[in-house]
Design a protein around this nucleic acid. Structure first.
Lengths: 331, 331
DNA sequence: TGCGTCAGGTTTACCGGTAACGTATCAAAA
DNA sequence: TTTTGATACGTTACCGGTAAACCTGACGCA
């Protein structure tokens, strides 16, 4: 990587600073200077050095850090995609990390990213260690917390209420005539969001006078198998459930598979409801009753809120991105 | 972010350079100096500045860039996960981007990342623009190409042969007595890998004396819907197929759904085979016949090969990570 | 006693940008 | 004609580290 601003300056017969201004598209130079400089830069194969730029002025960083619970999650893949597209379009670069649903791992990751002096950060969830909060306050760079709405965000927040998701599904199932509901969840480490949905679900059922009959929360990854065996366990304890709400769609599909293997008719004998809106759920023989989460939109909104703040535009502190309950044929 | 090396140096009564050496764990200082410096650094809440470090010396960068076709792909999510875990463990940071299967977008992304002077790059696929190759040669930083094995990698390569995947599946299906095979693919933009599998599949069938009867390659995203309607189209043209090989598992599951909706028995009336080894495929009522791809292992191997090179250890140029054909109950 | 050696530092010179500020030029206004 | 202001550019001082050269006192040894 040989050519730098000075080389161009020498070759174009102007000063370093003029080259810098031209290449950054500022002002303070004549049209002919601009043409000469851009031509020389091209012939020399100049590649800008953001390291130097960000180092020289803390305003110049175009680096955004983002931390998600798991990189293998379909939902977060779409969130990442939304963030990535928006940031790319706006001229920012994305540094990522995963924290396995652990606030301590998140802090460790933030400690690494902060050392690159990023322009801003996007974090998933609202649970942070005190150390994390300290670090963020000290760094004073904009932070967007996504996924769950925070009552008091560190800085900005984009997402929806998991409690409300559960509550809405509870109301829906009651309206459909369900009276004996169960819940199957999973918490790999500690997925607080799932717990919030469960709480919303149970609260609503109780208020409606038909409280939850049985619940089973596995200490396992929330996948197909957990749903399959979770429903088996639940029905072993309480055979007369008329509907089961699952932690997410993967688990619901697992539950669906178990119900079919037992010869149970869905939705006649038992209803099945999931959460998340994964693609597979819509092409099942019977379309899954679920809550569709606007993953890409959340990512996009988060990135845009962050960049707006960086550009000094007054952005919203809290952005609500609504979910949508999709009735389907299993609930 | 207030405390820097000089602040610590002043407070500890030593020089900046001594602080730098202590904090980076070098040598050339006494134990009491070390203790004093680390204590002062802690009380001042010092956060290292990698920007300055990487800027000051090009060896000091711990930044690795990685470009994948799509962030929403389940398979690449796992590859990313493998890379992320390995790099985190080894003390590197990961900058990502997506190129939508487009070599031009890849070049644009590389141009951005190169400007951060990364220690190394991980790219997906072997198709690059001439501009990309130029850039990489000029930057002279290590590059690992993953996913498909390259005959002549730019630098290093980790993956497997897509052609062989298709060929192996062809052999397997022939052994199972299939004689009238079809293929359903998809190319959002241009997925060259899928084409390689198709080629391996067709070549093997021809050599075995039972060439492919029909193929349908949709200009669509390779998902459930594409598989569903792809099989519909294919069977509309050639009703007497006895097996269909799909671009990937999502599409195969879509095909499975179509077969069931038509009342076709699987595998008796028609066999279904996929590729990729997605989790859902193993919990279907009938486990899908597919090729399991060691996604996480590829990511891990790529990261480790890169870091080995960075540390000057002699690494392998080409690492083969074998795939595994899983018979299942649909083929 | 003189000299080399070595651990344990310090000093200095960058790295490649950006920001702040200074200055030359020239046209319009007074 | 002089003053003013805008424009276009040059100069210089950093930013926070790293590398390498350079000290310095203690110690060993001939």
């Amino acid at each position: 990587m040989k050519a730098n601003l000075e080389d161009i300056a020498r070759a174009a017969g102007v000063s370093k600073m003029t080259v810098s201004r031209v290449l950054r598209g500022g002002s303070g130079f004549s049209a002919e200077t601009r043409d000469k400089v851009t031509k020389v830069a091209e012939t020399l194969g100049y590649v800008p050095n953001r390291l130097a730029a960000a180092f020289g002025s803390d305003q110049a960083s175009t680096l955004v850090g983002m931390c998600v619970p798991r990189l293998t999650s379909g939902l977060f893949g779409h969130v990442l995609d939304g963030v990535d597209r928006a940031l790319t379009r706006l001229g920012y670069q994305l540094m990522i990390g995963a924290n396995s649903h652990s606030a301590a791992e998140e802090e460790a990751w933030i400690r690494q990213v902060i050392s690159w002096r990023p322009a801003g950060l996007i974090l998933s969830g609202r649970t942070h260690t005190p150390g994390t909060v300290d670090l963020l306050r000290q760094a004073a760079s904009p932070v967007v917390e996504i996924w769950d709405l925070t009552t008091s965000p560190i800085d900005m927040s984009v997402g929806f209420s998991h409690f409300d998701c559960g509550a809405e599904m509870g109301q829906f199932l009651i309206r459909r005539g369900r009276r004996r509901a169960g819940y199957v969840g999973a918490l790999a480490r500690a997925d607080v969001m799932g717990a919030a949905r469960q709480e919303g679900f149970e609260t609503t059922l109780s208020r409606a006078g038909h409280p939850l009959i049985a619940r089973e929360v596995l200490h396992d990854a929330p996948g197909f198998y957990a749903g399959y065996y979770g429903l088996e366990t639940l029905l072993g304890r309480e055979p007369k459930l008329d509907v089961v709400y699952f932690h997410n769609d993967e688990m619901a599909i697992g539950g669906l598979a178990y119900a079919q293997s037992r010869g149970l008719r869905v939705p006649e004998d038992i209803g099945i409801a999931g959460w998340g809106g994964m693609e597979a759920a819509s092409i099942l023989p019977r379309r899954l009753t679920t809550t569709v989460v606007p993953t890409t939109a959340i990512g996009k909104a988060a990135a845009e809120a962050l960049v707006a703040r960086l550009k000094g535009e007054p952005g919203q502190e809290v952005t609500v991105v609504p979910t949508r309950l999709v009735p389907g044929e299993t609930g």
